[in-house]
Structures are given as C-alpha cells and as structure tokens.
Nucleic acid binder design. Structure first.
Length: 891
RNA sequence: GCCCUGGUGGCGGAAUUGGUAGACGCGCAGGACUUAAAAUCCUGUUUGCCGUAAGGCGAGUACGGGUUCAAUUCCCGUCUGGGGCACCA
C-alpha cells in the first residue's frame, strides 16, 4: 500500500467538515489561545502559492496549541468592501456583491484544499449587512465620543455637554482650535447649530473641512497612507490636495498612547519603527514672535531646537499661512502674490521631485526676537509646510541645513552660534559642543541648553514646551458606492446620527444596519459625490437627506478580530463575555504592507472601545509576525528578430527561438549581422541568406517571459510551447542545445500574472497533495523571510512523506507496525525529535522542524524500526504540519 | 539624506545564549536494482594543497580592523541587497 494522498485528503476533508471537528466553543475549561491571520481581500485573480504562507504557519501553530491542550480560536474571513470590486463593476456592470461572492467562493475552495483548521462557522464578511451593522454602530460610538486629555481617555459626548453647561470649555480646549473659548452661560445661549458645530469639533468621528487627497481619476478622496509620492496607491493616478467637507477620525488624540504602548508589544522593530515614523513624535517648544509694527499680532513656531534660539536670523512662513496677507509690506505685495501664485501652480508631484530647489520671497515684515528683541525678517517659502507644526519656522542657518541653503541662496547674514564647529560652508547640526553668541547660553553644552532656553522663553511669556506629532487625523469618507453607508441624516443641514433623539419619530431610519441600496450604475454622483447621491428615494427620507459618502476600506478591518469571538450576535458587536474570554489576539500574522494603515486604525479603535467600556483590553495584537513574500521565479525564452530582410522564397518562415547558450553566443556577435545570419544558417535556419543582408537590416534578440508552468526547472517543454505559439516544424525554428533541450533563462521577480510566473496552489495540491504542499512551503525558509518559489524542490518533501509512510506500510505486507518494545537508540531519536520540533514550533521556526522530521525518519528507517510506541509519537508530532496524513496513520 | 533589516556552497537555507561552520532539501556527479523506464536505495558534493587510499595540512560565513582561550554570532569602519520615511522645523 502506497501513500495515496488524494484519497486520504478527500476522506479527511469530508470527515472534518461533516463532524464539525474544528468548531470552537466560547465555553471551555481550557486556557484560550487566539491566533489570527490578516483576512484577505477576495480579488478576482484567486490565490497563488505565496498567499497561503502565513495561513499555513498560523495553522500549524494553531494545531500545535490545540494538541497542547489550549482552546484555540483560529478563524478566517474576508475583507470584502473596496475599490477593485467597484472598478470592476464600473467596467463590466456586474454588481460588486455578485463578483465579491463569486470570488469568496473561489477563495474558500482554494483554502479548503490546503487543510486549514478554521471554524468556518465563525467566518466574517465585512460587506454583509449583519457585519457592517456593527461597523456602523462603532462609528456611532466614535461619533458620540470625545477625548478627555486630562483623564487621557475617550468619553461619551454627553459628559462633555454637562461640562460645557457648567463651565464652558476653559478646561477642555478644542482639539483643532485652542483659541476657541466660551463659558457655561455662553454655551447655553448658543443656537442648536452652534452647539452642534462646537461638539463636532470634539467628536472622535467628526465632519470637518480640511485639505484632503483628492484623486480625480478615481473620483474619490484617499487617506494619507493610500497616497504614495503624490499618486494613488491603487492605480497610480495623480492625487492633489483639496479643501473638502469630509468625515475624519480624531486619531491624533490617541497619538501619544499609540506611540507609548508600542513598547509593550511583541512586534518586529521595523514594524514599530514604521509606526513611530508615521506618528512622528517630536519634542520641542512652541515660541511666539511678535511682529514689528503691529499691535498684538504674532507668529507661533514649533522648534525641536530651542537651544538655537539665538541663532535665529529670519523666519519662514508657509506661503499658505493666513497671516501673510495681513503683514506683507506694500513694497513686497506684488512679489509675494506672484510667489504664492507660483507655488499654487506647482503640483504636489513637482514639489516632491524638486526638493532641493530653493525658492522664496521676502514679505517686507519683521518679527521681534522674543529674548534679544532683535528684528528678524519674515520670508515665505514652499519648504515650510502649512500642514506640519504651525506652518512657520524660526530659521537658524548655522544649525539647520535647509535654513543654511536658504540663507546662501538669498545672501542673508548668518549668525554663528557654534564657534569653531561652524565653518561657514554648511550647517552644524550635531549636538556635541558648546554654544557661542547666545547671551546667557554661551559656553553651555548644546544638549543641556534646551531646558534652559525653554525656561527663559516661558519666563518671557513667549512660549512653552511642546510635543508635536506629524500624524494627522484620518480621512474617513469616500465618494464611493462599495462601502458602509454612514448612519447620518442631515436635518436643516446639520448632521445627526440616526440614533439621536431627534430621529426618534422615525424608527425605520434609526434601524441598523443601514443597508446599501442597489444602484443603476456605479458612476460618481454630481460634483464628485458618491454614486449613492443618484438614488433619490434612498437619499431623501422623511427626516432629511442621508449622508451619501461611504466608509473607507479600513473601517471593516479595524475591528473584525473582535467579531470572530461572537460572530452571530445580533444584539451587540460581540458580547463582553466573549471578548473577555478570548481577549486580545495572541499572535497576528500578516504582511508588512499594513504597518501604518490597518494596524494603526485597529489599534485606535481598540483603545476607543476600551475607553468606552465595551472591551477589556486596549491593544488588539500582542505579537505580530510578518510573513515574507514568496517571489516568483520567472522563466524567459529568447527570440531573434530580423527586420528589413526578406526570407528566401520557398523556405519556411516563422519565428526563431534560441536556447540559452545560443543566445549567449549571439549576444557576443550581435553587432556583426553577417556573423549572426551565418550562425543561424549553421544551426539549421534556412530562411535567410547572408547575401540578402541590407544596410538597413536590423537584428535584435529579445528576452520574453514564458509561463513557468511549461518549464521544468530550466528546460522548456518544447511540445507545449510550440502548441501555444503555433510553431511547427514547417513554420518556425527552435534552436536547441546539443542535447536536444531548450534551456530558459531565470530571474526572481514578484509573483504576478503579467510575468507569467504565477503558480497556483490548486495545481500543486493536485500533483503532490496538500500535506506535501504545506510542509514544503514551511521548508522553504523562515516564515518572515521572502524567498523564491521553486516547484522542483517540492520533490524532496514528497519523497520524505513517502519514506515515512513506508515505516508503517509495506508494499506487499501492508500494515507493518509492531508492538515490540523500543530500544534505546530508537527512544533517543524520537525524544530528540520531540524536543527539537517542539522548541522550533514555539519560536515559529518551521523550516527547521521539517528538517528534523527528515532526519528522524532517515534514522528510524536505517534502524528498520516499525515499533508502535515510536511511530505513534512521530505521527502526533507531525500532525500540525501534515494533518490529513497524520489522521490517516493514526486510525 | 535619515531609520530599520539582511549579506554563509551552484541554489533555498541551518548553526536557538560566543563553543566542531555548511544541518536538511534541491541541483549535480557516480553507483545498485531493472531488458528498459518509473519508483526506490547507496556514495560524493565549500575550497586549495599532499596522498593510490584511509587520511593529513591550510584557507573560509561581503570586506578591513578589534575584543576573547574561542567570533557567522560581540564592537568599530567600509562596501552592498531589501524595506520604510523624506523639505517634518
């Protein structure tokens, strides 16, 4: 009896399914373990061999933990809202729900083929109404909350109203306008609209006017992390900054906590670093400069180097800074407006491309240095960004490279505050040495001067210590159809959440889910509005107009890990009992591409839900593992193309393909046309004659991708190739190696359809079985590392499974396991393996586990060991890796 | 430019805390079984030199230094692959 993987896998797949073997209960005496994969977006292309890498790793770990006596939650679902489905709908007219469902079915089949132990009963699909009902509900919780900076947590907005009624906002300044100020009495006198507008500026999910990334081609607004170098992440269309009314999440209020608790997480340093970069915390000071000749007018700057305060030689404002028009001197008015016009004309892309170009314009105004009272000229320049800090800087040319370049370019004087450390050729930005030319800071070490300078600034009433963050609030609306609708209705142009008392008279409007209506087409509505704006009987309700934007892709994925704990609950997003039992995800596996998007938003939502008392933990993912990519190993054929030269009459024509060594020979003589043609003739191409070469004859050799599935190693399956390209013995040439093979070239590239290097897991499973496939993916190398796929190598793992099989079965005799007592050598081998494999699984080193299995089986085979005690242990051990196989041997 | 990661045979990779470098697999070469093929099994496979051979001597983990009885591992400098950020004050 040999290893009949197809029958075995069919049998156990059915058994697991029929008996619901992997059903997980929330009621268990066992300790819990929650291991999760980042759920996929079900695209039309299906899975390739790279996708399941992380899934296999987590599946092995889940099965291992289960064997070790844990109650393991290991679910899978689909992140089904998003742009590609909608783009596809625009192109083909097919409803996104239809294509999404089709894709999910296909994904499900592919996943089931690999033998994962998911409890499919817990699966979530973010585009299903019974799921997004709760996405909408959480949005409402954020809408009804504000951030209490003193208690450092999110709180219900009704608490804020109570505070406002009592004392106004003096103790709770407005997050986006610290000038806003009112007392309790004024609050009570506010109109309904004023009250709502004010509250909106505190809410965690709020509507605001802000500059956002607008992508004309996609007809939508994009989040900061969806724009890369000024173009959209999906599709690569140009994006521009535009003032628009949008929904936002006030994630900036969580910046400090998001940054701080990174230290408690077991994530890779690279991942944490990316989040730290994104949050962009910097310590420094805010300093106020009065403007000469104006009463009570000032510019506030943020600086990380208050120690260099005496090196300030000028100030620079962002051209968009609102104070520019107020302070500009009449002599400079034309120059300034001309410069502003110039800046406006430049696209974001141009600005990014020409970073080092120095431009700017003097305003004619002067500010007063807060400590020395020296007047300093005020300039505007595009190198100062309106969106960071206060949109204004104090320029210290001797200590900052950009300020230095600016000074040199406009020939401004430079005050040297670093003594001999500054040599006049470039700025001195190190923090070693002492200060000079700095009044009371003279002779003080740079590292110690900041504190002293800040104290002096505070004493002068000119500023304060300040922490600044680069992160901005996250845009939360899209002018799109295929997303969650907002449960928001406008009454007299004021947005109300559907669960507010104002809508109590309309229970049908209040009900969640607010379902996405069917639309006629997916084209944008008027003025860039979402397609929903076209559905009049949906938009216009008895109470007022509905919000027509939809939520962004990351909404559904920001909390799905909570839903898995209680997926069928129709009273709550998840019961507190369920989330208390399962707690945070113990191990989360996924790619690094979500470092600053999904992972940051999910962390924020978790913190908000925690603050509001809905869950009992404030970090979603304790340990994070980033699986590497499996790259494609592309194959190339070489084609020789001859232009402007006529083939001989009555010779066969057609294309000419040459094998690798011929290609190498031809490349060397490529410039000599005569030699090339002679080479072809020598190799049997009777099509040309050397005497027919013309002066304008062009010879080129191209290297073209060829489907990896018709290449074995480097050897092309010529028969299949000829069939596909319609090359026969009479209408084309394939010049092979001396041994009759056609050898291809190979390169490692990203696996993608356009490179013809995609390997489908279904094909591998069909040929070698799921268990071999699983073990091989692990055997390739560490989970975290990127490595190329090589179908040839799978033979080794396949051979190993067959070899192990023969420890149990004999071709003639059948089952040969005996009840003999093991000898010491055998026990030694199996115990070594148990120790090693166990340790390796614990540290997620599955490639070395597989190696250890191979060693073990080789050693047992050498001892001719067929003893039950030994083999039973081995089967249990291998179960997480090759589950079907192990089940079959076990029974 | 800044930050994070890596660099080990022909290839994927191992060496877990500083302790025999190259496990395991692929590929390649040779051999056994077979009329033959498939399948299976065995041997060799970092490199230079010496030896018919068993074996011996030396070099070697990107490069150059250093610490140590001992370095792929720790430290300093250089080169280089990958990823992230980028006029962020």
């Amino acid at each position: 009896m040999e290893y009949a993987f197809r029958a075995i896998e069919q049998k156990w797949k059915k058994y697991w399914n029929d008996e619901e073997v992997y059903k997980v209960s929330n009621l268990s005496e066992k300790p819990k373990f929650y291991i999760l994969d980042m759920f996929p977006y079900p695209s039309g292309a299906g899975l390739h061999v790279g996708h399941p890498l992380g899934y296999i790793a987590s599946d092995i770990y889940a099965r291992y933990k289960r064997l070790r006596g844990y109650n393991v939650l290991h679910p899978m679902g689909f992140d089904a809202f998003g742009l590609p489905a909608e783009q596809y709908a625009i192109e083909t007219g097919q409803h996104p729900a239809v294509t999404t469902e089709k894709n999910i079915t296909r994904y499900r089949e592919q996943l089931d083929n690999i033998g994962f132990c998911y409890d499919w009963d817990r699966s979530v699909i973010t585009s299903n109404a019974d799921y997004y009902k709760w996405t909408q509900w959480i949005f409402l919780q954020l809408f009804h909350s504000w951030y209490d900076r003193k208690q450092n947590r999110a709180r219900p907005i009704k608490d804020l109203i109570t505070i406002f009624e009592k004392e106004g906002n003096s103790n709770n300044p407005c997050p986006d306008d610290d000038q806003m100020c009112f007392d309790g009495k004024q609050w009570k006198n506010f109109s309904e609209k004023e009250k709502r507008d004010t509250l909106m500026r505190y809410r965690l999910a709020y509507q605001g006017y802000a500059e956002v990334w607008w992508c004309e081609a996609l007809g939508t607004v994009l989040a900061n992390d969806e724009v890369i170098n000024g173009v959209s992440e999906r599709g690569g269309y140009p994006a521009e900054r535009k003032q628009m009314r949008q929904w936002f999440l006030r994630i900036t209020e969580f910046a400090e906590r998001l940054q701080e608790s990174l230290d408690t997480l077991d994530w890779s340093e690279a991942m944490k670093e990316m989040q730290r970069n994104w949050i962009g915390k910097s310590n420094g000071a805010e300093v106020r400069f009065e403007i000469q000749g104006f009463y009570n007018k000032h510019i506030t700057v943020f600086t990380t180097r208050p120690d260099t305060i005496f090196g300030v030689d000028f100030m620079v404002l962002a051209p968009e800074h609102e104070i520019v028009d107020e302070i500009v001197a009449s002599a400079q008015r034309d120059a300034v407006s001309e410069y502003k016009q110039y800046v406006k004309s430049r696209s974001e892309r141009e600005r990014m491309a020409e970073v080092k170009q120095v431009t700017g314009c003097f305003t004619g105004a002067y500010a007063l240095h807060p400590l020395s009272m020296k007047p300093v000229p005020i300039w505007i320049s595009e190198y100062v960004l309106a969106s960071y800090g206060t949109g204004a800087i104090m320029a210290v040319p001797s200590g900052d490279e950009r300020d230095h370049l600016f000074s040199k370019h406009f020939d401004l004087p430079i005050t040297n505050i670093f003594g001999t450390n500054y040599d006049g050729s470039k700025a001195y930005s190190d923090k070693t040495g002492v200060l000079d030319n700095s009044e009371f800071l003279n002779g003080i070490e740079i590292t110690k001067a900041s504190e002293i300078a800040i104290r002096a600034i505070v004493d002068a009433g000119a500023g304060r210590k300040k922490v600044n963050y680069r992160m901005r609030d996250a845009g939360f609306s899209r002018q799109r159809y295929w997303g969650e609708p907002f449960p928001i209705v406008y009454i007299s142009n004021i947005p109300y959440a559907t669960d507010e008392p104002e809508l109590d008279a309309y229970p049908t409007i209040q009900a969640l889910p607010l379902e996405l209506p069917l639309v006629e087409n997916y084209k944008p509505g008027p003025e860039g509005e979402s397609p929903l704006a076209n559905v009049e009987d949906w938009v216009n309700t008895l109470a007022g107009k509905r919000e027509t934007n939809t939520m962004p892709g990351y909404a559904g994925s920001s909390w799905y890990f909570l839903r898995y704990t209680d997926p069928h609950n129709d009273k709550e997003f998840a019961s507190r009992t369920a989330t208390d039992y399962w707690q945070a995800v113990d191990i989360y596996i996924g790619g690094t591409e979500h470092a600053v998007g999904h992972l940051l938003y999910a962390r924020m939502w978790t913190k908000a839900l925690y603050d509001l008392g809905h869950i009992g933990f404030d970090e979603p993912f304790k340990k994070l593992i980033n699986q590497g990519m499996i790259q494609g190993s592309s194959r190339f054929v070489f084609e020789l193309i001859v232009n402007k030269m006529s083939p001989k009459t009555n010779a066969r024509t057609g294309r000419i393909f040459v094998s690798k060594s011929h290609y190498e020979n031809l490349v060397k003589i490529q410039t000599d046309k005569e030699k090339v043609i002679q080479y072809l003739i020598d190799n049997g191409v009777a099509k040309y004659d050397v005497k027919d070469i013309r002066p304008d004859t062009k010879i080129s050799i191209i290297k073209a991708h060829i489907d990896v599935n018709i290449v074995d190693g480097l050897e092309l399956n010529v028969e299949e190739f000829s069939k596909r390209f319609n090359i026969t013995d009479t209408n084309g040439y394939i010049i092979r190696e001396d041994d009759g093979k056609y050898i291809c070239d190979a390169e490692i590239e990203k696996m993608s359809k356009s490179k013809y290097n995609v390997v489908n897991p279904d094909d591998i499973v069909e040929q070698y079985g799921a268990d071999t496939f699983r073990m091989y993916e692990m055997f390739l190398g560490p989970v975290e590392m990127s490595k190329p796929w090589d179908t040839k190598g799978i033979e080794g793992v396949f051979r190993f499974l067959k070899k192990m099989w023969r420890l149990y079965f004999d071709e003639q005799k059948g089952w040969i396991v005996t009840d003999e007592k093991p000898i010491e050598a055998e026990l030694r081998i199996i115990h070594k393996t148990i120790k090693k494999v166990g340790d390796d699984i614990e540290r997620f080193s599955f490639n070395t586990s597989v190696s250890q299995f191979m060693i073990c089986v080789n050693e047992l085979a050498a001892l001719n060991c067929h003893k039950r005690d030994i083999l039973e242990a081995l089967v249990v051990l291998i179960c997480p890796f090759a589950p079907h196989y192990a089940e079959e041997l076990w029974h």
